[in-house]
Design a protein around this nucleic acid. Structure first.
Lengths: 185, 185
DNA sequence: AAAAATATGTAGACCGATCTATTAAGGATT
DNA sequence: AATCCTTAATAGATCGGTCTACATATTTTT
């Protein structure tokens, strides 16, 4: 793949990710993606012959890796699991607020929309969540209930992100941050 | 409103709720609602002159009340807050599994799809979550951190429901149920 | 009680806009 | 020359919404 091609491909994924995060799978139109990315229609189907599903699946996996990277960074700079989780909640809260309550979890909306009806996207979402869960688990290594705890913290984060987005305020993220100590003591 | 009219209105709400829960706001087409409910197009706009937004908003509020009722029942039959939450998780898990992983939180998908772009639906979702939160708060009355705890338990429930749906298994709900004691001790 | 008038609700054809996807041809890059 | 990528016209389906005509109740008037 040449340089130009790689760039349009990236721009298409950028535009898709942006829209998917704000409005979900069904709320994202390919016309809009084409307009926002500046790429012509044909390029979309050249780079993503699988159409919308492939485009969204790749953009979701890419968003998943971005969060993985954030967790990787936090893992280095955090002295404890509590500090790690706190840093994560702060990062996600900043991202959410700065985006005008548009960017919550980049996967959740698509996950809910397609869980029952689209195996390809359901699998992509499931895998992304699985990788986040694994990252949390290694962060909690040594604890006897590390598995349950990782799932619980992930659920807590997702839920708080959802509530913060719906209410358009950081309140839920802050409440959860204050309670997380009870889980990690 | 005559009896017949009330019945078609209800059927329209039923069909909407069913589809919205599985596929969200954008994933729900009015043609599909009309077909599933058996009501003609004209009746839809007679009973819901506000169109799709009004239809979905009412169906979400109705779904919210249904959960309120479940919580009301559990409040009577539960001896402790832990028992209450446990009952809630079990109920939601049963509903989710029995529906073939289609029926998670009846509000979450629409909440995420419309949080940034549709004030009417954002408000409807926000209110429903507010009422659930209030119900949890009264269940936790007396505790010094009742407010934070109510939000945290709601977030935990929503997150677990999301993960369970995505992974198509009760695992996350069970993990959370095992960890909830640490919060409520 | 019969007839007329008014709500209430049903029925479906129709509209313009938008949806995802395909296609065939041409330009750019190596 | 050969591969890579872009361009734009087009297809057919579906979208939410409007509209007019009709049927069925309910109330008012006589």
């Amino acid at each position: 793949m040449g340089q130009k091609g790689a760039e349009t491909r990236d721009r298409l994924l950028d535009a898709t990710q942006e829209s998917v995060e704000a409005a979900g799978y069904f709320g994202t139109g390919l016309n809009q993606v084409i307009t926002a990315s500046g790429a012509p229609r044909g390029s979309l189907y050249f780079h993503f012959p699988g159409g919308k599903d492939q485009l969204v699946a790749e953009s979701i996996r890419r968003a998943g890796r971005a969060i993985d990277d954030v967790m990787g960074g936090l893992a280095n700079s955090s002295a404890s699991a509590a500090e790690f989780v706190d840093g994560m909640l702060r990062h996600l809260g900043d991202r959410l607020e700065e985006s005008g309550w548009r960017k919550g979890c980049p996967v959740a909306t698509v996950a809910l929309e397609t869980a029952a009806t689209n195996d390809l996207l359901q699998e992509a979402c499931s895998e992304v969540y699985g990788s986040w869960e694994a990252a949390l688990r290694t962060q909690l290594a040594g604890r006897p209930d590390a598995d349950d705890l990782a799932v619980t913290i992930l659920a807590l984060t997702e839920g708080a992100l959802l509530l913060a987005r719906v209410h358009r305020g950081r309140g839920p993220l802050d409440s959860v941050a204050r309670q997380i100590g009870a889980l990690l003591r």
